[in-house]
Structures are given as structure tokens and as C-alpha cells.
């Protein structure tokens, strides 16, 4: 580059090449540090890619389309019972979790005093840190044994509800908080009550964010195993759509039990189940990503 005058030369040397006068030791340690940081990022990404490639390769080679239409027989057969069971349990859970979570989030954002909102937000985060096996065991003690429901779809659905609730509450609340205050004031000035303001005006810009929260919670629920062990049981038949007193199969159970069997047919079932789960969950995550990009803001990554 051509340097016209001494002043610009000074500006250039401080702006672009600030490490010109550094002792070599500091420069090297800087390079070394960032090199290490990039290596760590590379390690994480390559582990993820290795995991994805391994599961997809195993899945593609062992998946057969007729697995979707046959049920499990002993160590072989298909996955229809597990797929329908997973959908049945997650369906029950989302039917309960979505209204409760969205209403709770709306209350925290629109009606609650800030002290209550902060308290609930804090304990919601703590609830999301409760190990999922403990949630499953809680439902086992309370509903499966206590109320005598036995292993059942409803007990499993309620266990998943507890897992999903924090995601939906916090994403609903945080997206509603991003809606400009002037929208609410406009609605109230037109004579709408607070409920009408929320139900007719304020939810519209937040709809995308709320949807991403619900979708994320569905992705989490699809991949859960631990809360279902003590609540859903296992069944090699298609679900009979009874809420209680009837065991249900699910996909993650196939993955962890059948991989420990010494038969290739059982392994094929486990690989296929993991592959199906991974594909569905990947699709949901990509959809969420697109929604967030389209609607802006959206759910913060609530882990």
C-alpha cells in the first residue's frame, strides 16, 4: 500500500500492525494461545462430525424401509411399535406441556411482578438441571406405584412434560420480553384489557420465538431415555392408545438394549433407531435455526 504522509503512516502502524514492536516471547505466546484455542474448537467439531458420520454410516447400511411397517420380534423385526410409541408419548407430553408452558411464560412476562418473575425464572433453571433419571424415578414412585397406573403412556408423558416445561416457559418469556413496550401501550390505549392485548397483539411478533421453544423441547423429548425407563416400560406391540396400565415401546430403548445383544440383527435395529432419531432431531434443529433467522431473536440457547 502507498503511504502518502508521515501521519497516515503512524496511523497505519498502530491500526494494522500493532504487534510490530512486541517482544518475540509475547508474540509467540499469543500465537500459541490462539493456536491451542483453534485446536480445541477443531477437536470439538471433529468429534461431533465423527459421531454423526459413524451413526449415519451404520444407520444407512442397516436401515430397511420395511422396519417402518413391522414390529419388533425378539431380537429382530422392525421398529414400528417403537416409532408409534415414541410419537404417542411425546404427543401426550406436548399436549400438556405446550399450554402450561406458554401460559406460564406469558404470565411471567406480562402480568407477574418482577420479584415473582425472577424467582420463577431461577427455579425453572434449577428444575432444568434435575437429572432426568430422577424425574423418571419420581414419576415411578408417585404415579406408577403410588397411584397404581403401572408402566403407561400417561406416566411417561408426564415425566417428559417435566423435562420439556423449562424450555417452553423460558423461551416464551424471553421472546415476549423482546416485544417492544409501545405495542402493549398502543393496545391498552385502544381500550383492550391486558389479556386482549396479549391474545390479539403482543403474541404476533413473538410467535416465532415461542414456536422455536416448543420445537426445541420436542427434539429434547424425542431423544430422552432415562425418564422413560421407569415410566413407559417396553412393549413389542404397537401402542393400544390406552393412557394407563399398558406398556409402550420407544426408540431410545431399542438403541441401548439392542446394542448390548450379541446378534447382528439386534445391532441393525439399534443402529437404525439411532439413525432415525438423529435425522429427525437434526431436521428439527435446522428448522429452529431457520425460524430464528426469519423471525429474529427467538429462543436463547437454553441448555
Amino acid at each position: 500500500m502507498s503511504v502518502k504522509s508521515p501521519e497516515t503512516a503512524v496511523v497505519f502502524s498502530t491500526g494494522k500492525d500493532r504487534s510490530v514492536g512486541l517482544p518475540r516471547r509475547r508474540r509467540l505466546s499469543s500465537y500459541f494461545g490462539w493456536g491451542l484455542a483453534w485446536a480445541c474448537a477443531g477437536l470439538v467439531v471433529s468429534a461431533l462430525l465423527d459421531l454423526l458420520v459413524t451413526v449415519v454410516m451404520k444407520g444407512v447400511t442397516s436401515f430397511r424401509w420395511d422396519m417402518l411397517t413391522t414390529v419388533t420380534h425378539g431380537i429382530a423385526g422392525g421398529l414400528q411399535n417403537a416409532i408409534l410409541g415414541t410419537l404417542w408419548i411425546v404427543g401426550i407430553a406436548i399436549v400438556m406441556a405446550a399450554p402450561v408452558g406458554i401460559l406460564g411464560g406469558v404470565y411471567l412476562s406480562e402480568f407477574a411482578r418482577s420479584g415473582w418473575a425472577r424467582t420463577v425464572r431461577f427455579w425453572t433453571e434449577v428444575l432444568s438441571g434435575v437429572p432426568s433419571i430422577v424425574v423418571g424415578y419420581f414419576i415411578y414412585l408417585l404415579l406408577v406405584l403410588g397411584l397404581g397406573w403401572g408402566f403407561s403412556a400417561l406416566a411417561a408423558g408426564i415425566a417428559l412434560l417435566i423435562i420439556m416445561l423449562p424450555y417452553i416457559v423460558s423461551s416464551t418469556e424471553s421472546t415476549l420480553r423482546q416485544v417492544p413496550w409501545s405495542l402493549r401501550e398502543g393496545a391498552w390505549a385502544l381500550g383492550l384489557t391486558r389479556f386482549q392485548a396479549v391474545s390479539r397483539v403482543v403474541w404476533r411478533p413473538a410467535a416465532g420465538g415461542i414456536a422455536t421453544g416448543v420445537l426445541t423441547s420436542i427434539a429434547v423429548a424425542l431423544g430422552e431415555t432415562a425418564p422413560l425407563l421407569y415410566t413407559a416400560g417396553w412393549s413389542a406391540y404397537n401402542p393400544d392408545w390406552h393412557l394407563t396400565h399398558s406398556q409402550v415401546g420407544y426408540l431410545t430403548y431399542v438403541v441401548w438394549t439392542y446394542i448390548e445383544q450379541p446378534y447382528p440383527e439386534a445391532h441393525a435395529l439399534a443402529y437404525s433407531a439411532a439413525f432415525l432419531l438423529l435425522v429427525v432431531i437434526l431436521c428439527i434443529h435446522i428448522l429452529v435455526r431457520m425460524l430464528v433467522r426469519r423471525w429474529g431473536g427467538g429462543a436463547k440457547s437454553h441448555l
Partner: peptide, 9 residues
């Protein structure tokens, strides 16, 4: 977001 059984696998 990857299920823990897939990590186990």
C-alpha cells in the same frame, strides 16, 4: 441436542 443414547452408541 444429540440424544445421550447416541453418545453412548
Amino acid at each position: 441436542g444429540i440424544p445421550s443414547v447416541v453418545f453412548g452408541l
